[in-house]
Design a protein around this nucleic acid. Sequence first.
DNA 1: CCACAAAGTCAACAGTTGTTGACATGATCT
DNA 2: AGATCATGTCAACAACTGTTGACTTTGTGG
Lengths: 183, 183
Amino acid sequence: MSHPVSTKDKLLTVARAMFWTRGYSNVSVRDITKAAGVDAALVSRYFGSKFGLFEATLSEIPEWEALEAAPEDLLSAAVASFSHPYDPDVDQANPFTMLLANVIDPEIGAHVRGMVQQKLADPLTERLDGPNAEDRATMLLAALFGMALMRKNFQLKSLATASLDEIEAQTRHLAEAAIRYDA
Amino acid sequence: MSHPVSTKDKLLTVARAMFWTRGYSNVSVRDITKAAGVDAALVSRYFGSKFGLFEATLSEIPEWEALEAAPEDLLSAAVASFSHPYDPDVDQANPFTMLLANVIDPEIGAHVRGMVQQKLADPLTERLDGPNAEDRATMLLAALFGMALMRKNFQLKSLATASLDEIEAQTRHLAEAAIRYDA
DNA sequence: CCACAAAGTCAACAGTTGTTGACATGATCT
DNA sequence: AGATCATGTCAACAACTGTTGACTTTGTGG
C-alpha cells in the first residue's frame, strides 16, 4: 500500500462491504470494527453513531451517475453488478445489492425507498419520455432488479452457472420488453 | 368469534404476519407475544424456540399449490399478492413478501433460497417445457418478483396509485415476454 | 373431593446490542 | 520543554435478545 490507510477509511470500506450485502441491522458495530481491526468506540467518535456510519457509505456513490444515465447504460450497470454469483469472500457491494438488502430494514427502509424513487425511477422516467414513461420506467426497474434478485439473492441454479453473456441476453430481453410496453 | 382461539393459534397467526413482512431477525419473540397478548415463555413451550415458531408458519402454506400450478395461475397468484399497497395495518403476509423479506436473513436465508428453487423454479421449469425451459422459468420469476418488489417494497409512485387492472396488465406483459424468450 | 396434568405467570439467566466517559499515547506547534 | 490536540484503548452502562426453571392457576378424570 502506498499510503497508510486511515482508520476512518478502513471503517468506511468494511462498513460498505458489510452493510451493503448483509443489510444494516444484520451487521453489528462490533462486526465491523473487529473485521477492520479497530476499536468499537471509534465508530461513535468518527461518525457519531452506527447510523452515521451507514449514511457515510451512501454519501458518495459513483455508480449513481451511471444509473442516472440512459436506459442502455443502466442496463450495462445492472448486468455488471451481476458479474459474480454470491460469494462471501468477494466484495459484492453495489447499489443494486445495497437496495435489495436494506429495503425491509425497519430503521432505514424508508431512507432506501426514497433513493430508488429519486435516483432511479424519476431520472429514468424523464429519459424514457413518450407515453407511459413512468410505467415503463417502473417495469424496466422491475426487470433489472428481478434478474439481480434471482441471481444474487435467490441464487437460482440456471443463473448460478450461466455465463455473463447469457445473463446479459436474458436481462436485455426482459428490459426491452419493459420499454416497449404500451398501455 | 365462534370458538375461543387457542394460544398456539394466536401465536402462529401473529408470527406469520410479522415474520412474513418484517423479516425473521427484525422481529423479536417479545414483539410477537406482546401483540398476541401472551407470555413470552410460551413460545419455547409450544414451538421449542423462535426458529421453531418460524418453521411452523411455513409448514402449511396453501398458496404453494397455486404457485406450483400452470404459469397462468402463478401469474394470477402473483398479481393477487400485489392487491394492496403497503399498509402496516393490513396483513400483507403472502409467500412473495415472505420470500423477499427473508432471503437476506443470516439465520434463515439458505432455508428460504431452497424453497424458491424447489417450490417455484423447479416445478415451473417442468411446466414450461420446451427449449430453455429453466431459463424462461427464471425470467418469469424475475418478472413477477420484480413487479412485487417495485410495488410492495420499493413502493414506487406509479404502482402505488395504479389500479389492480393496470398492474396486472403490466405484469402480464413482462411475464409473457419472459416465457417467449428464445436463446 | 382428590390427584394429576395441562396452561399460564413471573423473575432471572447469560449474551449481545449501541454508546459513553475516563484514561493513555503520540504527534505537532510555540 | 511544555502545552495542545488528535488518536486510540478500555471498562462499563442500560437496553434488549432468546431461553430457562420454579411457581401458581385451571381443568379434567377417578
